[in-house]
Computed example of a mutant assay.
Amino acid sequence: MLAGLALSAESIGRAAVLALHDELALSPKPGLVTLTSNGSHRDMDARTFLRSMSALRPYFVEIAGLGAHGAPFPDLEQAGLRAEARMLAATGGVNTHRGAIFLLGLLCAAAGAVAAAGWPPTPASIRSTLIDRWGEALRQRASRPSSLPGGIAARKLGLRSASEEAALGFPAVFDIGVPAMQSALTRGLPAEHARLDVFFHLMAVLDDSNLAHRGGLDGLRFAQDAAREFLALGGAAHPDAIPRAERLSLAFEARWLSPGGSADMLAAVCWMRRIGALGAVM
């Protein structure tokens, strides 16, 4: 963890890659790739994700530096497109981290700007900087129709897209994921159980376009209802949390559901913990 240390572009970027590994290593994680399972995927496994992470590390450092130097949104966007090309080259054309390139990239840029201003990295300072610096550009981006499968599904079903989530300053991350992580750690949950609790809190509320693309509105509601039931029964603090999550993994795989948006947001919360933004609960 980087609490108490001055943040640099290098440390911000390194924390992003470590956070992606935190997300990958969490298991069980219904429908998603872990170190021991392909989840609801035939075209990728943990090795695919690790190759992608290695390819993306320079990008997260680069975009943190761009943020520190006050780069306009088109510069961030171009860096993201170059990173996506490197990801696809490393994975043989498999999309492992497109959502994380967008979400974590923006957060790294905001953290770079926060560090350059001499402010402490907190969820509030990172979110406000993101909105103040690039909010208008993100709102304009959100108004453009997406050609990606998740964006098409979101528009068809009347759901909030990833671009709209970004334009609002990622409310699922800051209003749901961060408080869930702080609560879990304050209650003394081990780190892996805390990540599991955060994951289910996110899945319970997020209009996850990956779920909508794969399972339609019924698939999305099935996943949200399953997450809410998991939390209502005690979440990751319940003695049977792991077996219950394993049973849900089987149910998600039977329906070919993959909550990739929730995974990306879990990684964002893990990243904030790694850069010291969650303070004393770490």
Rank of each mutant, 00 (worst) to 15 (best):
L107M: 15
L107R: 01
C108S: 11
A110I: 07
A111F: 08
A111V: 08
A111L: 15
A111I: 10
A113W: 00
A115Q: 07
A116K: 09
A116I: 02
W119S: 10
W119D: 13
W119H: 13
P120C: 11
P120K: 09
P120S: 09
P120H: 10
A124M: 11
S125F: 04
R127N: 05
S128R: 03
L130E: 00
L130K: 00
I131G: 03
I131R: 10
D132C: 11
D132T: 13
R133A: 04
G135P: 05
G135A: 08
R139A: 12
R139Y: 11
R141A: 15
A142Y: 07
A142W: 09
S143T: 12
S143I: 09
P145S: 13
S147G: 14
S147P: 08
S147L: 15
P149Y: 01
P149S: 11
G150S: 13
G151K: 01
A153T: 05
A154G: 08
R155Q: 15
R155Y: 14
L157S: 04
L159F: 09
L159A: 07
L159I: 06
R160G: 06
R160S: 09
S161V: 05
S161A: 09
A162G: 08
S163I: 11
S163G: 14
E165G: 01
E165I: 03
E165W: 02
E165R: 02
A166L: 10
A167D: 06
L168K: 11
F170S: 01
P171C: 08
P171D: 12
A172H: 13
F174I: 08
F174Y: 06
D175E: 15
D175S: 11
D175C: 10
I176V: 14
I176T: 13
I176A: 07
V178D: 00
P179Q: 07
A180T: 05
M181R: 02
Q182T: 12
S183R: 14
S183Q: 14
S183W: 09
L185Q: 01
T186G: 13
R187E: 14
R187D: 11
R187P: 02
R187C: 11
L189D: 00
P190D: 12
P190Y: 08
P190G: 07
A191P: 08
E192Q: 12
H193G: 08
H193K: 15
A194S: 03
A194Q: 03
L196N: 00
V198G: 00
V198K: 00
F199C: 03
F199M: 11
L202Y: 00
M203Q: 09
A204G: 02
A204H: 03
V205R: 14
V205T: 12
L206H: 01
L206K: 02
L206V: 12
D207Q: 05
D207A: 07
D208R: 05
N210I: 03
N210H: 12
A212L: 07
H213V: 08
R214S: 00
L217P: 02
L217G: 13
D218L: 11
